[in-house]
Nucleic acid binder design. Structure first.
Lengths: 185, 185
DNA sequence: TCCAATCGTTCGGCTTGACGAACACACCGT
DNA sequence: ACGGTGTGTTCGTCAAGCCGAACGATTGGA
């Protein structure tokens, strides 16, 4: 469920936050971005519906990526011990996925720790279009990737593959574990 | 270097790409998004400078996050074997960071594999404001986190901490390795 | 005290994005 | 052949974003 919240208030808040963090005055930022300071004033006050070019110029002048202005910020510190955290089991494939960092507003990726045992492969149907998966093996050996062209990986190996096509993930040794970053770009 | 390329052509291309992927006609999408199809037509043709509300409505109707429309897409499959790939060394701290997936347009995260040996801690100065770091330990033990409140982690443990304040990372056992996701939200 | 500079706000104007209707075109069933 | 429905386009009108200037408020120095 992307696009949470009303964009205009978020933009207003983000704009003011980023500007103050940069230590710029409203006038100074407006000058650097090449827009009228009246425009910026109205934007920060929540009134107004900026065009993309205006927002873009502000993002450049602030030195922050565009999306920082339209998505709210993120939390602070968190620890999830091994074995803790929300886990997803699959008895069919001896498969455990622990969700470490779900996709909060402002991010577009999930981070999992996978614990796999040899046996039936975990066959995944396509996810949301545009998804890509990053896999880094911590221990053991896995056979993973697109269903037509899987790749065998060992400890330290890294694999990038599209998540919006059928793909597979299978342990080749006991005690296999890996880190997966699922990206919803 | 955020915000590459002119936004309007990117938006035009993204809009058409996402619409065709969703199997929607221009008229149908316009109706679902609650905007005039003439507006959408001009947007996809590259002319026009849409307001945020317009783009937002289109993002919702397409079921894609806002930023997908303003940033270009991503590649396909890649493998980086353990020991390969661009590595960053630090003889002071017995520290090796291998960049697996840099931050291409469309993504806002870097993925590293860290190989650490006990010794001097790696002290990091703050990165770009808004950066957060995710750390998953593969083997060994590490002491990492904000400089004032570091956390000790073992295999499978996960840690989230802000990257825009001073932080540290130190191996407590030989042969320590971890996966780090540096996020530039 | 007074002046100058900077802050952020508010007020007419010009420009432009968004809308709806009309348009040409392609396809399908009658 | 002929309506009928779908596509995506172009045109004129209206509303709104953006701009520049003027404004009151605050600060610091002469």
């Amino acid at each position: 469920m992307p696009n949470t919240g009303a964009p205009l208030e978020v933009i207003a808040a983000s704009l003011r936050r980023e500007r103050e963090r940069a230590g710029l005055s409203l006038s100074e930022l407006a000058k650097r971005a090449g827009i009228a300071k009246s425009t910026l004033s109205q934007l920060e006050s929540g009134s107004g519906n900026p065009s993309v070019e205006t927002l873009w110029a502000l993002g450049v002048a602030l030195g922050v990526p565009f999306s920082r202005l339209v998505d709210p910020p993120t939390p602070r510190v968190r620890v999830i011990r091994a074995g803790e955290g929300p886990a997803i089991y699959s008895e069919r494939a001896h498969y455990t996925a622990t969700l470490l960092a779900s996709c909060p507003p402002g991010a577009r990726r999930d981070i999992y720790v996978l614990n796999l045992e040899p046996g039936a492969a975990r066959e995944s149907e396509p996810h949301m279009p545009g998804t890509t998966e990053h896999l880094v093996v911590s221990a053991g050996r896995v056979l993973a990737g697109p269903r037509e062209e899987p790749v065998e990986l060992g400890p330290g190996d890294y694999l990038l593959y599209p998540g919006d096509v059928p793909h597979t993930c299978q342990a080749l040794e006991p005690g296999t574990s890996a880190v997966m970053v699922m990206e919803h770009v």
